[in-house]
Amino acid sequence: MKIMNMVNAINDALDLKLAEDKTVIVYGQDVGVEGGVFRVTEGLQKKYGVQRVFDSPLAESGIVGTAIGMAVAGLRPVVEMQFCGFIYPAFNQIISHASRMRNRSRGKYETPIVIRMPYGGGINALEHHSESMETIFGHIPGLKVVVPSTPHDAKGMLIAAIESNDTILFMEPKRIYRAIKQEVAEGKFTIPLGKANVIAQGTDVTVVAYGAMVREVQKAAVMAKEAGISVEIIDLRSIYPIDRETIAKSVKKTGRIITVTEGPKTYGVGSEISQIALEEAFLHLEAPPARVSGFDVIVPLPKGEHHYMQDPYKIFYEIERTVKY
C-alpha cells in the first residue's frame, strides 16, 4: 500500500503497463518532456524513452487518427487530450472510425485505444477547460466512457481500460486530481469497467454520481444523516456501459433516486439514469426521479463558476425535497 492522489495513481498505472506490455505507447500534447500540464505523465519519458512516451503536435484529430492506425496495426496507444474541451477536432476520428472499426471490418480489426482527458469544473479555469461532455460520448455506439472518483479506482480502471480491446474514453475529474489521497495497492490490479460501486448503504434515497461529484454527495449525505435521512450512494464509474442492475436494485430498496452530474441538464446522464429507474423500478418509486445538474449554458468563468457547480447544499436540498415528496 502506498498513499497516492489520483495523479500518482494514474501515473502508476501507466508506468505498470508500459513496463509490462511493449505494445503500450503514451503520447499527446506536452505529455513527454513536460510530463503533462497536470504532471500525470511525469517521469515516464525518462524511463521508457521518446519512442514510447512522446509529445505530439497541437492537433487532436491527428493524435486520435494516428492512434487508430497504430491500434489496427497491433499497438495499444494511450493518448491524452489536454482538456475535455479540446477534443472536438478529434470528434470525426472517434465517431467515424474508432467507434465503428470493429463493425465496419466485420470483426477483423479492433481499436484498443485509451483516450485520457481531464474534464469538469471547479478549479477556476478558463472557457473550454471546465466542460463535462461525457453525455456526448456515452451516446455513441462502440465507445466506452468511464470516470474514476478515487485514486484506487483510477489505477484499477485505467489498467483495465488499457487491457481492453475497445476504444475507451477515460475521463479524469481534474478537480479531485490532488484533492483526495488514498492508500492504493502496489502492483497490478484491475476494476471491471461497467460496474457501479455502492459506496454507502442507505434506505431512504439513492443518489447516483461519478467523478468529482461523488465527494460532494458524500458531504450532503452527512448533512442528510443529521436530518435523519439515510442516503445510499452509488458511484456510477462507467457512463457507458451503464450498470442498470445496481441502479435498479438500489432504487427498489430506497424508492427514491437523485442524480448528481456536472454537465448541462438537458439530455444528460441524469436523464438516462432516471429513465432506468422508471423502467426497472416504477412500482417502487415514492417520488419522481430528481436531477441535480449543471445548467444548459457554457460553464461560467471563475467568478461565476460556483453558481453553476453542484455543492453539498444543493444536493441536500434535493435529497430533503425528494424524501418529503
Binding site: 479555469a125 489521497k181 488514498q182 492508500e183
Partner: peptide, 17 residues
C-alpha cells in the same frame, strides 16, 4: 498551468479499497 487544483492535506486520507 490552468486553474487551481485543490490539494489534499496529509491528515485526510481516504480509506483504502
Amino acid at each position: 498551468v490552468v486553474g487551481t487544483l485543490e490539494v489534499a492535506g496529509n491528515s485526510i486520507v481516504l480509506s483504502a479499497s
